[in-house]
Each structure stands twice: as structure tokens, then as C-alpha cells.
Computed example of a mutant assay.
Amino acid sequence: MSLDQLDAQGRLRHLLTLEGLPRQTLLRLLDRAEALRPHAFGGTALRGALAGTALCTLFFEPSTRTRSSFWLAAQRLGADVLNFDASTSSTSKGETAADTLRNLEAMGVRGFVVRHREDGAVAALATAAAPGTVLVNAGDGRSAHPTQGLLDMLTLRQAKGADFARLKVLIVGDVKHSRVARSDLHALRTLGAGEIRVCGPRTLLPEDPATLAGCTVGHDLDAALEGVDAVMMLRLQRERMQEGLVASLEEYHRDYGLTAARLRRAAPDAVVLHPGPMNRGVEITDEVADGPQSRILQQVGNGVAVRMAVLEALLAA
């Protein structure tokens, strides 16, 4: 899939996944996002970058952070933004996603930021799109959430420096259902993270061994936390799982919830990330989420800069 994202000159045509994305492409996006951070929180200096370009946020699933930050990113770059709500559109009358995309293309929309509940749905739309139309995957099924992976890497880099080879990174929780975890794993491997640990109950880890290739996998959170530089907590995705994968929320928190006492097993300067929305008291306590080692709100802020960098790379002349 990564080859379909690049043109003959190696430039991005779409952003569908971080899997297989060249290291230099990933680094360029991170560098540009860092440079764009001052513009992400206000100002009009870059409003000419995408002036006259129509962009649609085509969301078939609910979203707060991702949709809002893409909208802000596009606004900062001067794009005309059309927000699409599947629940009030013709998709509720049976129109296919591909027909929805073609109709919007016919109105002059050039870029689409798409979230969909089905794996591979965004790549399928990229195949159906007209030449020159660009697509960004804002999360599809359990497969990928590339801009979340990028903003997580940017947050890690800001906290720990550019040399990922020195880092021990732990991902905790519901990896089985998490598109965020998959994008983070793709990015961490590409950036050469020194050690990647994954911890969770057996029922919430993927059966496909390729997903966890190169990772140290365990089920004891206390042991997994020892000496790590970063802890990436995942939301327990109850809406995507069958009943019975966890005995109870109380037992999950007992075994896999990140508390301040548990966090002391990590390196003293370890940072904590979470893609949100958080289930407070389930995967993370208030004391950790709001504590000095948390970088969760920094992640949210970085989302605007990262999405500006992606939209600029794909749509700017």
C-alpha cells in the first residue's frame, strides 16, 4: 500500500498508512510539523498556502480531536473546508461512499480526510478517486491512523530527542482493536526505536504475529514498565470488541491501569501518552493523566501542526 501513496518522484499522493513509508518521508513530515507549530495555534501568515483549495472531512464515524484538528489545520492554511456528516447525508439513503466522493469531486473538492469503520475503506476510495484528488486516512477500522502515529512520534521526539535508538517504549492495552497502536508500531520501527514493548491481556493482543514483529510482548504490566522511557496507553475500545474479552472494567484497571505507583517503575523522566478519549479510572488514573509526566494535551496540540504538514505536503502547489 505504501507504494500507492507515492508518485514516481517519491512525493506523497495520499497518506493511507505509515506502514512502509520511507524513513525520510516520515522525518520530513515531522520536521515540517515542528516548524509549523507556531502557526498551529493562531495567525494568518500561511492562509495563502491552500487558498482556493476545497477540502472535505468525510467522516463515517464520530470524532472530536481528529476532526477538529484537521479542520483547524486546513483553516490555518486557508483552505475551504466542507464538513461531511454521514448521519445527515445521502449515505443514510443508501448512497455508497465512492458515489459520495465522486459527487463532491464534481463540486471541485480536491482533498478528502476520511474516517471509516471498515478496514481498507480509505484505500478503496483512493483507488476510486479521480487523478489529482488526494486522500488522508483519519482512521479506518482497526488498520491505521497515520496522522495520530505522526503526532505521537512528534511528541516523543520533543520529549526525548531525535535518537529513537536510545528509547524503550511501552504500548499498553487493547492493541487488538487499535488502529493507533498499529500506526505507532509502524512509525517506531521505521524510526529505529531501541526497544518496543507491548503489554496487555492475551484476549486484547492481535493474533497476527506480523503486527507485533520485533516487539517484546508480555502480560505483566509491572514488569513491562521497568525502566521504560515512554508509556503509550491505549483506550479500551468496548465498542469494537465482543463481550467477554475482559472480565470487568475493575479487573482491567487492577491489572493494566496506569497509576502513579506503577509509573514509578519506569525511568524517572518517562513520559505518558494517550490518544484519547481516555477512560479515566480504567486505563489511566487522574493522577497520571493530569500529572507532570503526562504529554497527553501536548499530543492534542501537536495534532494541528502534524495535520497542517500533511495537508501542505499533499495539496500545496
Rank of each mutant, 00 (worst) to 15 (best):
Ser63Glu: 01
Thr96Lys: 11
Arg76Thr: 06
Ala128Ser: 14
His14Gly: 06
Pro275Asp: 11
Ala247Asn: 14
Leu27Lys: 11
Arg182Met: 06
Val310Arg: 00
Gly200His: 05
Thr133Ser: 11
Leu273Gly: 03
Gly303Ala: 05
Val300Met: 04
Leu167Lys: 03
Leu154Pro: 00
Tyr252Lys: 05
Ala247Met: 10
Leu3Trp: 14
Glu251Thr: 14
Ala305Val: 03
Leu58Ala: 11
Arg23Trp: 05
Ala213Gly: 06
Phe70Thr: 00
Leu185Gln: 07
Phe84Thr: 06
Leu225Trp: 05
Asn83Val: 15
Ala187Thr: 01
Gly120Met: 05
Ser69Arg: 00
Glu207Asn: 14
Leu46Tyr: 03
Pro292Glu: 14
Phe84Asp: 03
Pro292Leu: 09
Ala181Trp: 02
Gly20Arg: 12
His274Ile: 04
Thr127Asn: 12
Glu105His: 13
His219Trp: 08
Pro22Lys: 11
Gly194Tyr: 07
Arg235Gln: 13
Lys168Ala: 15
Ala213Asp: 15
Arg28Glu: 15
Gly257Leu: 08
Val175Ala: 08
Ala73Tyr: 00
Leu297Ile: 09
Arg115Cys: 01
Thr259His: 04
Val217Arg: 08
Ile196Phe: 04
His14Asn: 12
Ala261Ser: 14
Arg202Asn: 10
Ala309Ser: 10
Arg115Pro: 02
Leu125Ser: 01
Gly218Phe: 03
Ala213Val: 08
Ile296Pro: 01
Ala124Gly: 10
Ala138Gln: 07
Val300Lys: 01
Ala267Phe: 09
Gly139Met: 01
Leu156His: 00
Leu36Asn: 07
Asp174Phe: 04
Leu72Val: 14
Ala317Lys: 14
Asp229Thr: 06
Tyr252Trp: 13
Ala289Pro: 07
Trp71Glu: 15
Leu249Asn: 11
Asp290Ala: 13
Thr211Val: 15
Leu58Met: 15
Asp290Trp: 08
Arg13Ser: 03
Gly108Leu: 12
Gly281Cys: 13
Ala121Gln: 07
Leu125Gly: 02
Gly227Thr: 05
Asn302Val: 04
Ser68Trp: 00
Ala260Met: 06
Arg76Ile: 05
Leu150Ser: 03
Gly281Leu: 13
Leu273Thr: 03
Asp7Pro: 10
Asn137Ile: 03
Leu15Lys: 02
Gln9Glu: 14
Ala165Glu: 09
Arg254Ala: 15
Gln237Lys: 11
Asp85Ala: 15
His253Trp: 11
Ala266Pro: 03
Ala317Phe: 03
Asp152Arg: 06
Thr53Gly: 04
Phe59Ile: 07
Thr64Cys: 09
Leu273Pro: 00
